[in-house]
Write a protein that binds this DNA or RNA. Structure first.
Ligand SMILES: [Zn+2]
Ligand SMILES: [Zn+2]
Ligand SMILES: [Zn+2]
Ligand SMILES: [Zn+2]
Lengths: 161, 161
DNA sequence: GCCCAGATGTTATAACATATCAATAGCACT
DNA sequence: AGTGCTATTGATATGTTATAACATCTGGGC
């Protein structure tokens, strides 16, 4: 059953299972513990396939008896973000499962202001103008936040012709 | 009396006055009202020359009898951001006066995680890889957030040698 | 003077995030 | 099995950021 993701359709069940399997693998290799709450949190983010607030995630978890207090959600999100399984969208104060799980990358996001869907892409800002500016200023870049807000294909005004 | 700004020294009093004059001019031309609270808020952001939280700004304002409730600060900041006189740093949930006031630009920021100083530079992410990705996805970019976190020159570990 | 739009004053609350400390579970070592 | 260490979880409280909602005021066009 295809479903919209990153503005494109795909076999979503398959995509969730693949990502979970990769996460299991990565944790086994890295000695990380993908505990029930963490694994279920990742599964929820993958299933929603959009940016969820920490309290949105918490609502899902608490409905399943996996914890009812904010720290439960924030701890799980912190783990997932550290492990590279999820990203925080700063412009939304929300979290989304990584779309390139297992691949080393510098994420960038396209965020629809109308339907809040998010597409993850890749970038290398530290190698472009931003990197030049940092170098000139003597600044050491450790992390970059690149987010574009606008309208996704589905939310474009019909207009024109 | 020079003071650090964007990791470099400069005549700060002069820089504040110039920016305020430009803001006055711009408002006069555009039919915007730079009311006392708004003007003072901009002056405070300019004087601090670093990212201030809305409640930090509110503390300054309330100490001067210019309003004591959150909406006062958020309204002023909203005006300044809309007018292009200030920017929101999404990664900090904080606000900073624009360093290129009056010039049309797409801001990008270098944020020191140690001393919280911020340098504003310029970028054109919509013309690079991000723009390509957006085009391929049929996404219309309206605004971009580009922020780099790391260490400023003053906060680099001495080490080496 | 009247009206309207924008700006302010004020109260309350929503939404996002962390500090702290106690209890527990997994694991290495003996 | 028992000991000690560390990561995780449970639970309560609090801190921080942001907006909703509604009343009031102010300035400029008519
Ligand atoms: Zn997917
Ligand atoms: Zn959309
Ligand atoms: Zn600027
Ligand atoms: Zn610094």
């Amino acid at each position: 059953m295809p479903r919209t993701i990153g503005f494109a359709k795909h076999d979503h069940d398959d995509c969730v299972q693949t990502a979970l399997a990769r996460a299991d693998m990565h944790c086994a290799n890295a000695g990380l513990r993908l505990t029930p709450v963490r694994r279920r949190s990742l599964e929820i983010l993958l299933a929603e396939h959009r940016a969820l607030g920490a309290y949105d995630l918490l609502a899902h978890l608490s409905a399943e008896g996996l914890g009812a207090q904010p720290p439960v959600a924030y701890r799980a999100l912190d783990f997932l973000v550290r492990a590279g399984f999820a990203h925080k969208i700063e412009a939304l104060n929300a979290y989304i499962a990584c779309a390139h799980l297992g691949v080393n990358h510098t994420p960038a996001f396209l965020i629809c202001r109308s339907c809040r869907s998010v597409a993850e892409t890749d970038t290398a800002p530290a190698q472009g103008r931003l990197g030049d500016a940092a170098k000139a200023a003597g600044f050491t870049i450790e992390r970059t936040v690149v987010e574009a807000e606008g309208l996704c294909p589905a939310c474009q005004p019909e207009s024109a012709s």
